[in-house]
Design a protein around this nucleic acid. Structure first.
Lengths: 261, 261
DNA sequence: CGAATAGTGTCTATAAGACATTATACT
DNA sequence: AGTATAATGTCTTATAGACACTATTCG
């Protein structure tokens, strides 16, 4: 029905487009997601994902809109020299969400494009703009409905968590949860926390090092702490792991449980 | 900046939202994508992906809008009993696309949600509605720019092809390219065509059968043709392969070439 | 020199890759 | 019987999984 593309600006219901960010970090041995408490109707007083309207006049594209919102909400973002800063946030699109009435505001329909944002242990957020509050919450609290979210944000978090868990297997996503320079123990910790499984350190280290292009030694070592110093590594190049890092059976099952809709 | 969610229907630029479909099938030993020739400005006379505006009043959600467009453009779609019909189309969201001015029509911004649609060797499309023409084209012709597409549809096809190639590895997506009942040779053919690589039949058959839950014997066999009859299988349950089907090195490299932006 | 943490090494089991032969239908 | 196609088996190599000891720093 190509005629539906015919130019007629008023022929079809118009949408507002928002971006919503599922910002994850690993803190206190848990996968945590950044939430803001809404200051107005609708869903006033409820927790929600940070996000906001795409400004067609200000934002060059969806990624930029997401970056802007991330910056405005958390003062975190993508810096000019990504590899040179420990506060760089990894950002990628998850998918778009819309169904009739997913936003209760009358007179408009709101479609949202959800983004996955990941960073190393991030500073305590400061409630920005009109948000009444901003805080890290364990992702499980959202998944288990101990924390209720506005709109369809629980579904977004569900999808985002499942995506994160899946992508630890076949992408270098885990390295986005740690600082630019990290130890193997820190990387292992990310996997264990997100999968909710303990992994064998020896097999894990071997696997990581055999995967060419995932990490490279940074030369430096930890110091000051008790015990043998740990070598630092930095992430290197690859964006697909030729062989996946398998998550244990039980973890996959747990993910299945979490993902029930 | 939660205040940006404040209800004010006129405060922000409004969008039109479209869905665009990258419909793939395997025909004539090639991965082919369904294109329509545009009947009007903009991009009149150019090939484009089928798609159209989301109608907030008619479409319950994005998937439904995509289904509707698919039906209107190709007379194909999701039937009530999916598993009982050979013409069922597998549909899933790819991602959303928008950047300033991606649609040249003045007075509005158009964001699109791209869908991946996959079906068994589909009938020749009939040009529906206002489309001047509808045809299957080899995906490579689009990737190599032998066929120019309207809007940013070449990018969408690129992303879609890469997604298809990737997902053959760790999902049962290949079974969506074949009829409900299929032979192992047909399934192998899908992999070979999409990856552009010949695979070892013996290793492939073993791998497929070892993967529990991917396929189940249908009981029936081919007949009429010369040679030993082939057993029919049907796809069964799983949506993630616990161990991926590896594509050969060279195929991955080729994908890299194709994906250059 | 003991405590704490990091970093290997080895054996076994499973899966992948290379390769050729047997099986079953049709004409 | 011959031809065409399907299906399977075996050997080798690579990777994953289970498991325990050695190495290096600090106080």
């Amino acid at each position: 029905m190509d005629d539906e593309r015919t130019y007629d600006a008023s022929a079809f219901p118009r949408f507002a487009v928002t971006v919503d960010l599922a910002v994850f970090t690993v803190r206190d041995d848990a996968l945590q997601v950044l939430l803001v408490r809404r200051g107005q109707w609708p869903y006033e007083g409820m927790w929600a994902l940070p996000g906001g309207f795409v400004r067609a006049d200000r934002d060059a594209n969806l990624d930029r809109a997401a970056q802007r919102e991330l910056w405005e909400e958390t003062r975190l973002g993508m810096h000019a020299l990504a590899s040179a800063d420990d506060k760089t946030i990894h950002l990628e699109q998850l998918r778009a969400y819309w169904r009739q009435g997913r936003d209760p505001r009358p007179g408009q329909e709101v479609a949202t494009v959800a983004f996955l944002a990941i960073g190393p242990d991030l500073p305590e957020p400061t409630a920005g703009g009109d948000a009444a509050e901003a805080a890290w919450r364990p992702a499980v609290d959202v998944l288990t409905e101990r924390v209720a979210l506005a709109f369809d944000h629980r579904q977004i978090v569900r999808d985002a968590v499942e995506e994160v868990r899946r992508r630890l297997e076949d992408s270098p996503l885990a390295t986005q949860f740690v600082p630019r320079e990290f130890t193997l123990a820190e990387l292992l910790h990310v996997y264990e926390v997100i999968w909710g499984e303990t992994l064998d350190k020896r097999n894990f280290y071997r696997k990581i090092k055999e995967l060419g292009g995932l990490i490279t030694p940074a030369g430096r070592q930890t110091s000051g702490r008790s015990g043998r110093p740990a070598k630092y590594y930095v992430r290197s190049g690859v964006d697909v792991l030729r062989r996946p890092i398998h998550r244990p059976e039980s973890s996959a099952k747990q993910a299945g449980l979490w993902d029930e809709r």
